[in-house]
Write a protein that binds this DNA or RNA. Structure first.
Length: 475
RNA sequence: GCCCCCAUCGUCCAGCGGCCGAGGACAUCGCCCUUUCAAGGCGGAAACACGGGUUCGAAUCCCGUUGGGGGUGCCA
C-alpha cells in the first residue's frame, strides 16, 4: 500500500492537515505501506519555500515521518508535459482562448455548472497563450468509490470541461495530482472531504491516461475540521497552526492523540493512544462522516494528562527543551535550575501547558517581581486585616526554620490569632510573595524562594499598602 | 443557482433493527478532599432535527423536508 499527503505550501501547516497526515501515516504503518510526502506547488505565485520547511518541521515534531519525498511538483514538469502530450494526441483535450471574463460570463449565462464548453468544437490549435481543457463526456455517470462514503455518483453533464493546463503551459493541480498518483503508484488517496467534488475529474483523467490500465486508487474522504461557527478551518481566519500549539507548550503526543479522535474512535470508549497504539488500532473504515469541531478545551485536558504522566525528570527535560526551542534561553536556564527541580512536581500537577509551567514559577525567577494589581487589591487592599497579618508574618518569618512544614505551623498559628483558617491567612501573604491570588502551594514556594527574598517581598507589600492608604492612621 | 457531503448531549465520540426509559469523554453545575489553585472522588443537568414510510419492533433501513457544510478558479 502506498499513500501520500499533498499539502500546498501556501500558508502554515494547520491541525486539519496534520490530522490528514496522521491518518495516512497510521494507515501506511498498519499495512506496512509507504507514506509519501509530496509538495503541491504548481502555482508558483502562491507558494513559499518557508512553508515547505514549516510542513516538514511540524510533521517531524508530531513524529510523523515520511518514507519518500518530499517530492515537489514544481520539479516534475516534464511528467505533466508528457501526460498533456498523450492526452492531446488521443483527443481528450482542446485548446481554449477564452479570457477569464468571457468564461465568467458564459458560466453565468449557462444553467450547468462551470464553463459551458464554448471552445470545445472550435478546433483551436494548441499554442502558447491558450489553456487546455478536458473534454468531459456529455453523457454517463462517473462513480467515485469511497471507503468512507460509499459510491458517490456524478452525472457527467454536471461536470464542466475543466482546465488541465494554464495558458502559460503549467499544469493544474488535478492533472498534476493524477499524474503523480499514477507514477508514484499511490494505492489509497486519503484526504479531506473538500476534494470530493473534484474527484470525478481525477477519475476521468485517470481513465484517459495510460495505455495499460492502472487501477484507480481507493479514495477515502475525511470529514473536514471546522471552527466554532462550523466552517471549514481556514489558515487565514482561524489560529490553528501546529507551530502555535507547539510554541504554547503542547506536547506532540497530546496533539496526536487528540487529532486521532477527531473523526475516529476505537468504538469501545478508550481515548488514550500513543502513535504506536494508533498503528495497530486505527481503522479507516471506522472514520466518521460528519465534520468535527477542533475543541481546544479538550486538547488542553489531554495535554495536562500527558504532562502529569511524565516522570518528573522527563517533565523538567521537556520544559527545558521547549524553552530552548522557542529561543527563550533565560527560561530554559531557569527550568534547568535546582530551584525549579524542587518545585517541579507541584508545577507538573497544575500546568496544562509548558508555558503555564513557566508562568507558575515566574515568582522565582523574574527580577523585581511585583504583585499584580488585581491580586494586590483583592487580597491585601480590600482586606482590613491584611496589614497586620503581613507585619506579623514578616516578624515570624525572620527567624526559625524556613522549611515548608515549619512555615505552615507559623502561619496557621498566626491565622488562629486572627480567627482565620489557613486558607484565609495565606491569601495576603500569597499575594505579597508569589504575586498572585492563585498558584503553587504557598509554603513550599516560600521555602524555595528563601528567607531573604520572602522578607523583601513582604516589606514591599507592606509599603505599597501604606502608600495606597495614606488616610488610614493605622497603616 | 447548480453539484456533492453531512445530521445522537454545548463539544468529540459509542450506537450499525430488539440489550437504548440512549453510553463514555471534554466543558458545565453541586458536594467531598484540601494550603490558594490544580489533581482526585462522588453526584447532577444535558441529545437521537422534523415528517412520512418499511417492520411485530427504528437513534439504527428507505424517501422527503429542514438545517449545516463543502465545491462550483487558468487556487490546492
Amino acid at each position: 500500500m502506498r499513500v501520500r499527503i499533498a499539502p500546498s505550501p501556501t500558508g502554515y501547516f494547520h491541525v486539519g492537515g496534520a490530522r490528514t497526515a496522521l491518518y495516512n501515516w497510521c494507515f501506511a504503518k498498519r499495512h506496512n505501506g509507504v507514506f509519501v510526502l509530496r509538495i503541491e506547488d504548481t502555482d508558483a505565485e502562491r507558494n513559499k519555500e518557508e512553508w515547505v520547511a514549516g510542513i516538514a518541521s511540524a510533521l517531524t515534531w508530531l513524529g510523523i515521518n515520511w518514507d519518500e519525498g518530499p517530492y515537489r511538483q514544481s520539479q516534475r514538469g516534464e511528467h505533466y508535459q508528457a501526460a498533456l502530450e498523450e492526452l492531446w494526441s488521443n483527443g481528450y483535450l482542446y485548446a481554449c482562448d477564452c479570457t477569464r471574463e468571457i468564461v465568467l460570463e458564459r458560466t453565468k449565462a449557462n444553467a450547468t455548472p462551470g464553463y459551458d464548453g464554448f471552445c470545445r468544437d472550435r478546433g483551436l490549435d494548441r499554442q502558447p497563450g491558450r489553456a487546455l481543457r478536458f473534454k468531459v463526456p456529455r453523457e454517463g455517470v462517473t462513480v467515485v468509490t469511497d471507503v468512507i462514503r460509499g459510491e458517490v455518483r456524478f452525472a457527467n453533464s454536471t461536470i464542466d470541461d475543466f482546465v488541465v493546463a494554464k495558458s502559460n503551459g503549467n499544469p493544474l493541480f488535478v492533472l498534476a495530482g493524477v499524474v503523480d498518483d499514477r507514477e508514484m503508484r499511490i494505492s489509497h488517496v486519503i484526504r479531506a472531504e473538500e476534494h470530493l467534488p473534484t474527484t470525478p475529474k481525477a477519475v476521468l483523467l485517470w481513465e484517459a491516461l495510460g495505455v495499460a490500465a492502472l487501477p484507480l486508487p481507493v479514495y477515502a474522504h475525511l470529514p473536514v475540521l471546522v471552527n466554532d461557527k462550523r466552517q471549514k478551518i481556514s489558515k487565514r481566519r482561524d489560529r490553528v497552526a501546529i507551530e502555535d500549539y507547539r510554541a504554547q507548550g503542547f506536547l506532540p503526543e497530546a496533539m496526536v492523540n487528540y487529532l486521532a479522535l477527531l473523526g475516529w474512535s476505537p468504538g469501545d470508549g478508550r481515548e488514550y493512544f500513543s502513535l504506536e497504539d494508533l498503528v495497530t488500532e486505527f481503522d479507516l473504515g471506522s472514520v466518521n462522516h460528519s465534520p468535527a469541531f477542533f475543541d481546544e478545551a479538550k486538547l488542553l485536558h489531554f495535554n495536562g494528562v500527558y504532562l502529569r504522566e511524565l516522570p518528573v525528570e522527563s517533565f523538567i527535560a521537556r520544559c527545558c527543551q521547549w524553552a530552548a526551542e522557542d529561543a527563550q534561553s533565560q527560561v530554559a536556564a531557569d527550568f534547568a535550575s535546582a530551584e525549579f527541580a524542587r518545585l517541579a512536581p507541584l508545577v507538573q500537577e497544575r500546568a496544562a501547558t509548558l508555558s503555564e509551567a513557566a508562568s507558575l514559577v515566574e515568582f522565582l525567577f523574574v527580577a523585581d517581581y511585583e504583585t499584580e494589581t488585581e491580586s494586590f487589591e483583592k487580597a491585601i487592599l480590600r482586606d482590613p486585616d491584611a496589614g497586620s497579618i503581613l507585619a506579623e508574618a514578616r516578624e515570624r518569618l525572620e527567624e526559625g526554620s524556613f522549611e515548608a512544614a515549619a512555615l505552615k505551623g507559623e502561619i496557621s498559628d498566626l491565622g488562629e490569632k486572627h480567627g482565620r483558617k489557613l486558607g484565609k491567612v495565606q491569601a495576603p501573604i500569597r499575594a505579597a510573595v508569589l504575586g498572585r491570588g492563585v498558584g503553587l502551594p504557598l509554603f513550599e514556594s516560600l521555602e524555595v524562594l528563601g528567607r531573604a527574598r520572602s522578607l523583601e517581598r513582604l516589606d514591599a507589600a507592606i509599603e505599597r499598602l501604606a502608600a495606597s492608604r495614606p488616610e488610614d492612621p493605622s497603616a
